[in-house]
Design a protein around this nucleic acid. Sequence first.
DNA 1: ACCACAACCTGGCCGC
DNA 2: TGCGGCCAGGTTGTGG
Length: 270
Amino acid sequence: MPELPEVEMVARGLRGSLIGQMITEVRCYWPRHMDGLSVTEMQRRVHGRSIQAIGRRGKYLLFPLDDGQTLIIHLRMSGRLSVVAANSPTDKHTHTIFSLNNGRELRFWDQRKFGRVWLVDDVETVVGKLGPEPLDEDFSVAMLQERLNGRKRTLKPLLLDQTFVAGLGNIYADEALFYAGIHPTRTSDTLSEAEIVRLHGAMKKALQLGIARGGASLELYLRPDGTKGGMQLVLAVFRRTGESCYDCGTPIERIVLGGRSTHFCPHCQI
DNA sequence: ACCACAACCTGGCCGC
DNA sequence: TGCGGCCAGGTTGTGG
């Protein structure tokens, strides 16, 4: 569920309570959370290591440790992270717990169990295939144009493809296409230069607004401090099927593309 | 190269 | 109250 803005909020929310803390123990009640290593191996390799920083790449959270390894967490559809006192109550969806040496714990709550945790020497083994960061300075119109060049793909699934651009998910892909005034079923080879410029600006605008609003809390997403974001209050099309477009009043439509719900204004998006 | 679909999970909601 | 079906912010693998 969390997309780039939500994951960015999680990273920011965790920094104050995690940076410099040492991991003393790992408990895991859903071993499939661990990707590529056993719980025992995770425990052995992470014991006594301290967290040096918290970064984000696409929708992945990166926790570089003091020995060069990096702990990586992906929240997938329903993951939440929080740092709380070790004696505070857990519930049945708290599947993985990293104990810290200050009496607190980093807890991975994950109702649908799709989330994943890695521990790697080289982060590229996990995030190496991701496309560019859409909010980075160097993500330019020219770069977008170059990545579109020679391809013929339906735009909505293309925006969801993390190897094309990293970080957009179902909410921000729909919102960006609305801001750009482009229909989600259009294919990448039909975009004019002006439309590519609009799409580029729209992707950045949608993600920046998401961050500015603290992320979208539609169902399960909560920031690490347990509070909701506010992006859901300003969504233009996402899950507004049948409601009036704020720009022209036409009812928002819903279709399925690439197996995902897709929302758009049939009048504003051509 | 691209698309459609299933799978991985749990739980809420809706209609019967 | 129960049950089936559909829905959910993500990713990966398969087969066409």
